[in-house]
Design a binder for these strands. Structure first.
Lengths: 236, 236
DNA sequence: TTTAAGCGGAGACGCAATCTCCGTTTCGTG
DNA sequence: CACGAAACGGAGATTGCGTCTCCGCTTAAA
């Protein structure tokens, strides 16, 4: 107990200034992870990330307790960009243009980032990290949908979570085709279907699911119930 | 060479009638595999299949050289049903109704069978087995699309392979949502977008891909080039 | 110079799936 | 019924792969 070892001389150990390379390497790792996960998806190994950063795996594990922790930090960024994209949609006074731009912009983000795509497709992963932004994303989407209906440009039987499902479909197109722009073709098709028009008489199926459908894949645009406080996913 | 061992006495070994349980078990295995892959996807283990059949793994491996061989046999069945579904579409004189029914029926098959869904989503797997049916499926789809355009009910800038991509999107909806019927909602949306209508002025993006787009995921409805004779995929 | 913070990366570890091996059981036959 | 070949069962050998640890070496700060 009283041994004057590495811990502290007597009361306070005078803290040595942290080495500069520490933060430099941390930044390198984050940048590398961003690129590697963007290009190869979230199942790239931490060895890949470290090598791409010009560092050893050991270093990676000194900076992040495990792979998931690293991912979490990036996912947060990703969702921030999604949030921004949906906000742009809200700010447009032409609700249809806003809705379109919103869908397009989010789809663009996805198409360019395989990691984000995987998060969107398997939204379970997003639970821990994206959480901070999801509530705002949901609000933005709700707003755009609501206003588009008010302006009479969006068919009335569309629900906000439909947009989440649509993003999943577009993600699937990119994922499977490898064509980074092919999704635009099907978004056009879907938009033509979404647009309010007198010639459409049959309502969409599935309104029996209710307003807030608990579709596992659709919840990344906002948690289904406001009081769910992160039910501790497996995580690692 | 001349050793009178287990092979045959002199000229012909009198063949003993094969044991009855052999074929019975083979059938059991196929049935079990169908169910297991339908419910749990193609990555279920052969141990799972064998147990579900009430047999040991060893037996499974005596009947099928490896897991892929077993899958191949089933995939062939699956594609046969897809072929049938598309044929129904062709036989309807109302091309729009045929097109709709075709899409619906194939989507239904997918929604009920996770194995098929995986084959459709990752069409690479289908290369060895579905091959026999794919050419006919392609012909059926081409025909329905062509006739629907002739009848003026389908927008002119739609290509046959669009339907393959659409199936992938629907598969993704089922896969991620877990809702076995949710795809109907988005098929409706897409059909509204596919329908020819005077109010649509902008053509679909992506016509620059040409008539026979080499979209990896879209080729399960028919090989891109007729002369490609199975480029020997990894397979195992 | 000294010293501890930080690095590198080989390899231990864990896990999961495929497939083999051989003792045991079952079926067909005389 | 008795016999032998055919078929079975399932423990575990094998393989593959990704995560994370450990410790000798390097380097920044004092």
């Amino acid at each position: 107990m009283a041994a004057p070892s590495a811990f502290g001389e007597a009361g306070e150990a005078r803290a040595r200034r942290p080495r500069r390379d520490r933060e430099v390497n941390r930044t390198k790792l984050l940048a590398a992870a961003r690129e590697v996960f963007r290009d190869h998806g979230l199942k790239a190994t931490l060895d890949d990330v470290a090598r791409h950063a010009g560092l050893g795996v050991g270093t990676a594990y000194r900076h992040f307790p495990n792979k998931q922790a690293l991912i979490d930090e990036l996912v947060d960024d990703m969702f921030a960009r999604v949030e921004e994209a949906t906000r742009e949609g809200v700010e447009d006074s032409d609700a249809w243009r806003g809705l379109t731009a919103s869908l397009e912009h989010v789809a663009e983000l996805q198409a360019l980032d395989r990691g984000l795509r995987e998060v969107v497709l398997h939204s379970d992963r997003a639970v821990p990290a994206g959480l901070r932004h999801r509530e705002q994303i949901r609000r933005n989407v709700d707003l755009v949908v609501e206003r588009a209906k008010e302006q009479g440009v969006l068919r009335a039987d569309v629900e906000p979570w439909d947009l989440a499902v649509i993003q999943q479909m577009l993600a699937a197109v990119t994922e499977r085709s490898g064509q980074p722009d092919l999704w635009r073709r099907y978004l056009r098709l879907l938009l033509d279907g979404l647009r309010a028009g007198p010639e459409r008489t049959e309502p969409l199926p599935g309104r029996d699911y209710g307003k807030r459908l608990d579709v596992p894949g659709a919840n990344w645009m906002g948690p289904p119930s406001p009081s769910t406080d992160v039910p501790a996913p497996p995580h690692g």
